[in-house]
Protein backbone atom coordinates (compact mmCIF):
# COMPACT_ATOMS: atom_id res chain seq x y z
CA UNK A 1 0.00 0.00 0.00
CA UNK A 2 2.83 2.36 0.91
CA UNK A 3 4.54 1.77 -2.41
CA UNK A 4 1.28 2.33 -4.24
CA UNK A 5 0.73 5.67 -2.50
CA UNK A 6 4.30 6.68 -3.37
CA UNK A 7 3.92 5.76 -7.04
CA UNK A 8 0.61 7.58 -7.28
CA UNK A 9 2.25 10.71 -5.87
CA UNK A 10 5.17 10.34 -8.28
CA UNK A 11 2.87 10.20 -11.30
CA UNK A 12 0.70 13.07 -10.26
CA UNK A 13 3.53 15.40 -9.22
CA UNK A 14 5.09 15.57 -12.70
CA UNK A 15 4.04 18.24 -15.13
CA UNK A 16 4.38 16.14 -18.27
CA UNK A 17 1.74 13.75 -16.96
CA UNK A 18 -0.76 16.59 -16.63
CA UNK A 19 -0.03 17.45 -20.24
CA UNK A 20 -0.49 13.83 -21.31
CA UNK A 21 -3.87 13.67 -19.56
CA UNK A 22 -4.90 16.94 -21.19
CA UNK A 23 -3.92 15.62 -24.62
CA UNK A 24 -5.82 12.37 -23.96
CA UNK A 25 -8.98 14.22 -23.02
CA UNK A 26 -8.37 16.62 -25.92
CA UNK A 27 -9.43 13.73 -28.14
CA UNK A 28 -13.00 14.61 -27.17
CA UNK A 29 -12.49 18.11 -28.61
CA UNK A 30 -11.00 16.57 -31.71
CA UNK A 31 -14.20 14.54 -32.05
CA UNK A 32 -16.25 17.73 -31.71
CA UNK A 33 -14.16 19.34 -34.48
CA UNK A 34 -14.63 16.36 -36.79
CA UNK A 35 -18.36 16.39 -36.02
CA UNK A 36 -18.61 20.11 -36.78
CA UNK A 37 -16.89 19.68 -40.12
CA UNK A 38 -19.24 16.79 -40.86
CA UNK A 39 -22.23 18.97 -40.05
CA UNK A 40 -20.98 21.83 -42.22
CA UNK A 41 -20.39 19.44 -45.05
CA UNK A 42 -23.85 17.87 -44.68
CA UNK A 43 -25.60 21.22 -44.61
CA UNK A 44 -23.83 22.41 -47.75
CA UNK A 45 -24.52 19.20 -49.66
CA UNK A 46 -27.42 19.02 -52.13
CA UNK A 47 -30.50 17.40 -50.65
CA UNK A 48 -30.19 14.43 -52.99
CA UNK A 49 -26.86 13.42 -51.43
CA UNK A 50 -27.93 13.89 -47.83
CA UNK A 51 -29.85 10.69 -47.53
CA UNK A 52 -26.83 8.55 -48.25
CA UNK A 53 -24.43 10.50 -46.02
CA UNK A 54 -22.19 8.25 -43.92
CA UNK A 55 -19.56 8.94 -41.33
CA UNK A 56 -17.06 6.77 -39.49
CA UNK A 57 -17.55 6.18 -35.78
CA UNK A 58 -15.95 9.10 -34.01
CA UNK A 59 -14.64 6.93 -31.14
CA UNK A 60 -12.69 4.79 -33.56
CA UNK A 61 -11.23 7.87 -35.23
CA UNK A 62 -9.98 9.68 -32.14
CA UNK A 63 -9.19 6.74 -29.84
CA UNK A 64 -5.60 6.59 -31.03
CA UNK A 65 -4.87 9.87 -29.25
CA UNK A 66 -5.47 8.64 -25.66
CA UNK A 67 -4.02 5.25 -26.58
CA UNK A 68 -0.69 6.71 -27.64
CA UNK A 69 -0.62 9.43 -25.00
CA UNK A 70 -1.24 6.96 -22.19
CA UNK A 71 1.24 4.53 -23.75
CA UNK A 72 3.84 7.26 -23.57
CA UNK A 73 2.86 7.99 -19.97
CA UNK A 74 3.51 4.32 -19.22
CA UNK A 75 6.89 4.46 -20.93
CA UNK A 76 7.93 7.62 -19.11
CA UNK A 77 6.73 6.36 -15.73
CA UNK A 78 9.80 4.18 -15.63
CA UNK A 79 12.28 5.47 -18.23
CA UNK A 80 12.31 8.97 -16.72
CA UNK A 81 13.59 7.39 -13.51
CA UNK A 82 16.40 5.67 -15.36
CA UNK A 83 17.22 8.91 -17.20
CA UNK A 84 17.43 11.00 -14.03
CA UNK A 85 19.04 8.35 -11.81
CA UNK A 86 15.98 8.38 -9.58
CA UNK A 87 15.60 4.65 -10.15
CA UNK A 88 18.42 4.10 -7.65
CA UNK A 89 16.48 5.97 -5.00
CA UNK A 90 13.35 3.99 -5.81
CA UNK A 91 15.15 0.66 -5.61
CA UNK A 92 17.08 1.63 -2.47
CA UNK A 93 13.75 2.45 -0.82
CA UNK A 94 12.10 -0.78 -1.99
CA UNK A 95 14.91 -3.33 -2.33
CA UNK A 96 12.50 -5.97 -3.59
CA UNK A 97 12.05 -3.77 -6.71
CA UNK A 98 9.10 -5.71 -8.11
CA UNK A 99 6.59 -3.89 -5.89
CA UNK A 100 7.76 -0.64 -7.53
CA UNK A 101 6.89 -1.88 -11.02
CA UNK A 102 3.71 -3.53 -9.78
CA UNK A 103 2.58 -0.29 -8.13
CA UNK A 104 3.40 1.67 -11.29
CA UNK A 105 1.25 -0.79 -13.25
CA UNK A 106 -1.68 -0.24 -10.91
CA UNK A 107 -1.37 3.55 -11.14
CA UNK A 108 -0.78 3.80 -14.88
CA UNK A 109 -3.24 1.02 -15.72
CA UNK A 110 -5.80 2.58 -13.38
CA UNK A 111 -5.46 5.95 -15.09
CA UNK A 112 -5.89 4.18 -18.43
CA UNK A 113 -9.07 2.55 -17.12
CA UNK A 114 -10.44 5.99 -16.30
CA UNK A 115 -9.20 7.92 -19.34
CA UNK A 116 -10.24 5.29 -21.90
CA UNK A 117 -13.92 5.06 -20.94
CA UNK A 118 -14.18 8.82 -20.40
CA UNK A 119 -12.90 9.55 -23.90
CA UNK A 120 -14.82 6.77 -25.61
CA UNK A 121 -18.18 7.41 -23.97
CA UNK A 122 -17.88 11.19 -24.18
CA UNK A 123 -17.03 10.87 -27.87
CA UNK A 124 -20.00 8.60 -28.43
CA UNK A 125 -22.17 11.20 -26.68
CA UNK A 126 -20.73 13.86 -29.01
CA UNK A 127 -21.61 11.86 -32.09
CA UNK A 128 -25.08 11.15 -30.72
CA UNK A 129 -25.89 14.76 -29.87
CA UNK A 130 -24.23 16.43 -32.82
CA UNK A 131 -24.59 13.97 -35.69
CA UNK A 132 -27.63 11.86 -35.03
CA UNK A 133 -30.05 14.19 -36.82
CA UNK A 134 -27.97 14.09 -40.03
CA UNK A 135 -26.02 10.84 -40.17
CA UNK A 136 -26.89 7.30 -39.15
CA UNK A 137 -25.39 6.77 -35.68
CA UNK A 138 -25.65 3.30 -34.19
CA UNK A 139 -27.78 3.09 -31.05
CA UNK A 140 -26.11 2.97 -27.66
CA UNK A 141 -27.17 -0.59 -26.89
CA UNK A 142 -25.76 -1.82 -30.22
CA UNK A 143 -22.49 0.01 -29.77
CA UNK A 144 -22.05 -0.71 -26.06
CA UNK A 145 -19.94 -3.91 -26.31
CA UNK A 146 -17.49 -2.30 -28.72
CA UNK A 147 -17.40 0.94 -26.74
CA UNK A 148 -16.43 -1.04 -23.67
CA UNK A 149 -13.72 -3.14 -25.30
CA UNK A 150 -12.24 -0.17 -27.20
CA UNK A 151 -12.14 1.89 -24.05
CA UNK A 152 -10.24 -0.86 -22.25
CA UNK A 153 -7.47 -0.79 -24.83
CA UNK A 154 -6.25 2.53 -23.44
CA UNK A 155 -5.20 0.76 -20.24
CA UNK A 156 -3.54 -1.97 -22.33
CA UNK A 157 -1.50 0.64 -24.17
CA UNK A 158 -0.47 2.27 -20.89
CA UNK A 159 0.68 -1.08 -19.46
CA UNK A 160 2.35 -2.07 -22.73
CA UNK A 161 4.30 1.20 -22.63
CA UNK A 162 5.28 0.65 -19.00
CA UNK A 163 6.42 -2.90 -19.70
CA UNK A 164 8.46 -1.85 -22.73
CA UNK A 165 9.99 0.97 -20.69
CA UNK A 166 10.91 -1.42 -17.88
CA UNK A 167 12.56 -3.84 -20.30
CA UNK A 168 14.37 -1.29 -22.47
CA UNK A 169 15.07 1.48 -19.89
CA UNK A 170 15.09 4.06 -22.68
CA UNK A 171 12.22 6.36 -23.63
CA UNK A 172 13.26 6.55 -27.28
CA UNK A 173 13.61 2.79 -27.62
CA UNK A 174 10.36 1.99 -25.84
CA UNK A 175 8.31 4.56 -27.74
CA UNK A 176 9.82 3.41 -31.02
CA UNK A 177 8.84 -0.20 -30.31
CA UNK A 178 5.38 0.85 -29.13
CA UNK A 179 4.86 2.75 -32.38
CA UNK A 180 6.28 -0.18 -34.30
CA UNK A 181 3.76 -2.51 -32.68
CA UNK A 182 0.72 -0.34 -33.23
CA UNK A 183 1.50 1.29 -36.59
CA UNK A 184 4.42 -0.02 -38.54
CA UNK A 185 3.79 -3.74 -38.15
CA UNK A 186 0.03 -3.52 -38.92
CA UNK A 187 0.86 -1.47 -42.04
CA UNK A 188 3.31 -4.08 -43.20
CA UNK A 189 0.92 -6.90 -42.31
CA UNK A 190 -1.82 -5.16 -44.28
CA UNK A 191 0.39 -5.31 -47.36
CA UNK A 192 1.16 -9.02 -47.01
CA UNK A 193 -0.44 -11.42 -49.49
CA UNK A 194 -3.21 -13.67 -48.23
CA UNK A 195 -3.51 -15.76 -46.16
CA UNK A 196 -0.82 -14.08 -44.06
CA UNK A 197 -2.42 -10.66 -44.07
CA UNK A 198 -5.58 -12.13 -42.57
CA UNK A 199 -3.77 -14.41 -40.12
CA UNK A 200 -1.32 -11.86 -38.75
CA UNK A 201 -3.88 -9.08 -39.05
CA UNK A 202 -6.03 -10.97 -36.57
CA UNK A 203 -3.48 -10.74 -33.79
CA UNK A 204 -2.69 -7.05 -34.26
CA UNK A 205 -3.59 -4.99 -31.21
CA UNK A 206 -5.97 -2.81 -33.24
CA UNK A 207 -8.01 -5.81 -34.39
CA UNK A 208 -8.67 -7.25 -30.95
CA UNK A 209 -11.47 -5.05 -29.54
CA UNK A 210 -13.77 -5.79 -32.45
CA UNK A 211 -12.81 -9.44 -32.56
CA UNK A 212 -13.87 -9.63 -28.92
CA UNK A 213 -17.29 -8.24 -29.74
CA UNK A 214 -17.47 -10.12 -33.02
CA UNK A 215 -17.94 -6.98 -35.11
CA UNK A 216 -17.41 -6.91 -38.84
CA UNK A 217 -13.78 -6.18 -39.76
CA UNK A 218 -13.86 -6.88 -43.48
CA UNK A 219 -13.35 -3.24 -44.48
CA UNK A 220 -10.26 -2.79 -42.31
CA UNK A 221 -6.63 -3.80 -42.71
CA UNK A 222 -7.09 -6.25 -39.84
CA UNK A 223 -8.10 -9.87 -39.81
CA UNK A 224 -10.91 -11.43 -37.78
CA UNK A 225 -9.86 -15.02 -37.23
CA UNK A 226 -9.76 -15.05 -33.43
CA UNK A 227 -12.71 -16.08 -31.30
CA UNK A 228 -13.87 -13.49 -28.76
CA UNK A 229 -12.19 -15.42 -25.97
CA UNK A 230 -8.90 -15.81 -27.83
CA UNK A 231 -8.96 -12.12 -28.72
CA UNK A 232 -9.49 -11.19 -25.07
CA UNK A 233 -6.55 -13.37 -24.08
CA UNK A 234 -4.40 -11.76 -26.77
CA UNK A 235 -5.36 -8.30 -25.52
CA UNK A 236 -4.28 -9.21 -22.00
CA UNK A 237 -1.05 -10.72 -23.32
CA UNK A 238 -0.11 -7.46 -25.04
CA UNK A 239 0.15 -5.91 -21.58
CA UNK A 240 1.19 -8.98 -19.62
CA UNK A 241 4.13 -10.17 -21.72
CA UNK A 242 6.20 -6.97 -21.59
CA UNK A 243 5.25 -6.31 -17.97
CA UNK A 244 6.10 -9.87 -17.00
CA UNK A 245 9.45 -9.58 -18.76
CA UNK A 246 10.03 -6.31 -16.91
CA UNK A 247 9.23 -7.93 -13.57
CA UNK A 248 11.65 -10.77 -14.33
CA UNK A 249 14.47 -8.53 -15.50
CA UNK A 250 14.18 -5.74 -12.97
CA UNK A 251 15.29 -7.85 -10.04
CA UNK A 252 18.78 -8.82 -11.08
CA UNK A 253 19.97 -5.80 -13.02
CA UNK A 254 22.56 -3.37 -11.71
CA UNK A 255 21.31 0.19 -11.60
Amino acid sequence: MNVLAAEWLKIRSIRSNHLILAISLGAILLAVAVAMSAIAMYDSAPASMRAGARIAELEEVVLIVPQLAMGIMGVLAITSEYATGLIRTSFALVPGRRPVLAAKSVVVGGLGLVVGPVVVFATYAVSWWMLESRYPVAGFADRLPTLVTSSLTVAVYALLGLGLGAVLRSAAGAIAILVGLVYVIPMIVGNLPEPWSERLGSVMLGALPREITGEDLTSSVYGALLSPFAAAVALVLYAAVPLGSGLLLIRGRDV
Binding site: A5, K10, T84, L93, V94
Partner: peptide, 16 residues
Protein backbone atom coordinates in the same frame (compact mmCIF):
# COMPACT_ATOMS: atom_id res chain seq x y z
CA UNK B 1 12.75 14.71 -11.49
CA UNK B 2 13.19 18.30 -12.71
CA UNK B 3 9.51 19.28 -12.57
CA UNK B 4 8.68 17.72 -9.21
CA UNK B 5 8.74 19.98 -6.16
CA UNK B 6 11.20 19.38 -3.33
CA UNK B 7 8.27 18.71 -1.00
CA UNK B 8 6.73 16.09 -3.29
CA UNK B 9 10.14 14.52 -3.86
CA UNK B 10 10.46 13.86 -0.15
CA UNK B 11 6.80 13.03 0.29
CA UNK B 12 6.82 10.10 -2.15
CA UNK B 13 9.91 8.75 -0.41
CA UNK B 14 8.19 9.08 2.97
CA UNK B 15 5.07 7.34 1.62
CA UNK B 16 6.99 4.41 0.21
Amino acid sequence: HPTRSAYNHLLWMARS
